[in-house]
Design a protein around this nucleic acid. Sequence first.
RNA 1: GGGGACGUAGUUCAGUUCUGGUUAGAACGCCGGCCUGUCACGCCGGAGGUCGCGGGUUCGAGUCCCGUCGUCCCCGCCA
Length: 594
Amino acid sequence: MDIDTIGDWLRTNDCGSLRKDDIGRLVVLMGWVHRRRDLGRLIFIDLRDRYGLTQIVFDEDYDAASKVKAAVLRSEWVIAVKGEVAPRLAGQENPELPTGDIEVKVKELKILNEAEIPPFQVDGKIDASENLRLRYRYLELRRPALLNNLVMRHRIALTIRNFFNGQGFLEVETPVLTKSTPEGARDYLVPSRVSKGSFYALPQSPQLFKQLLMMAGFNRYFQIVKCFRDEDLRADRQPEFTQVDVEMSFADEQKVMDIVEAMMVDLFKTVLGIEIPRPFPVLEYTEAMGSYGSDKPDIRFAMELVDCSDLFASSAYKAFSSAIEQGGLVKAIRVEGGATFSRKELDSLDSIVADFGAQGLVWAKVRSDGWQSTLAKHLSPDTRAGLEKRLGAGEGDLVIFVADKAQQAHEALGSLRIEMGKRLGLLDNSTYSFVWVVRFPLLEYSHEEGRFMAVHHPFTAPLEEDVALLEERPEAVRARSYDLVLNGAEIGGGSVRIHTLELQNRIFRALGLDEQEVQEKFGFFLEALSYGTPPHAGIALGFDRLVAIMVGTESIRDVIAFPKTQRATCAVTDAPSKVGIDQLAELGLTLIKP
RNA sequence: GGGGACGUAGUUCAGUUCUGGUUAGAACGCCGGCCUGUCACGCCGGAGGUCGCGGGUUCGAGUCCCGUCGUCCCCGCCA
């Protein structure tokens, strides 16, 4: 096959732009053969580019030479055509296409490139396996669904930049080759050639640098920035991901929350044309856990967790009363109309509860003649009536109980709440419910590490009224933190930062960090704190998750051009890969045999 | 680190358990032919399989057993 050169041809239009008004014009289009329909002496081709589809016609009576040449064209070949914009025959318009009123009658065809038969049909309706789609990502990206996600991603980023620019924020780039610090996720390390035996780390977030920018007096900073965490992947977690990083001087939690709310309202209005009401609701961490069983509650529906511990305290049902005796509690959700779930459907809930280490669940179907439940024979009519009243349960409803230590009970019941919400179709993806979850615990005891760890990060300020507890009851100290949650997904988290050397040192001590290690890892930062640091606060938003929710997809892979697989490999390039011994030697590295 | 699902034609899947048994099927795609108004074109014909890989059981394995690799989901982990 001879490949033509593009020569002096200039594209006059893209494949999505021609309309009735263009009829009669001589145009040059270039693009990919999306689909061909060979009718013998007449060939139709849908020509595709990023902007759309245009039907082009090769007609023996119109131009015999190009019609003959066109017979060899196949899917995904790249062609250029010169031709005349013509109206479709009456009644042959295609209302599905923006260009459907016209077609281009080809006078001259250039074949710019041929293509192998694609491993999956680019024009196909059926999804290929994730495997194949990732390996041939450049083909998958030709499909409008994925392309549109990336177009949206671009528009979202642009809108966010415009918003922060308008509010006087400065976008500043921070280093990608930086310092490994303790706390937080596992770092990706980069060996230094110049300083053999030393390593850079890729940033888990630009946290310290943005605080340094506050110390530098930049006042309002933001950055749309890649971050890296070497942890296991999930549908909503990639080893490299993008944050909208924000920091403000002389600000408190309210100021940051106000700016972020305004940004979100502007974003949803501009990009989706949706009005989001302000202010966003605010829940304290303890409320979120108690009422929704989650620190990222999906408040698109109610079905709140209800404490029934007192009603079971002296119950004959041992599994419940003993859980309470051991300091636990019994909580329940009322699933409206849930009595129609089958035995099998309800049995499938057990595995969800087991995932959270909870002991199990008990369900009860409320019927006119009493409860259908393993619990039924252990309950007095009074207790049953009391439960029904508290839960607001009536005939046809389902009640699910979980008894355990507070955390397990909350998490297990919280996940059951989401599952029931799904099964009842209560998770409406056209609704966007924001909620702030504030005042997380500052510290959490890690049995693995044998010490307290920062829940957010070690630069988060404690609530002033709780500071005194720092040494005696560290677990009781609440943080000046705020997470932003959208439809049950954590899309951002931030805090008021510590801005005095004294308090920062106290926190490091509470974290049980060795003085020398603190100096080694954070010495530069502590020194900076001592040169006149303004009070400051900030937030980081998970950009990929935000985009995923806005385009309505479950997996952030669908909004990333070249995502990693679950084993953190790149299916296109096959990274990570082995390197030569010379390359290692240059870095002063040798490999330990596995 | 742990649990689970999946892996069969280029692709998406059926067949796989209960019950191992002649030539492993369908749709789309692909190749050839016919076709002047299609737009998921249509019609006729055809090619295409290491049933992920390795081992085992068996007279006989896509099917049963063990291991392994890959993809995905979840728990742990992710300040």
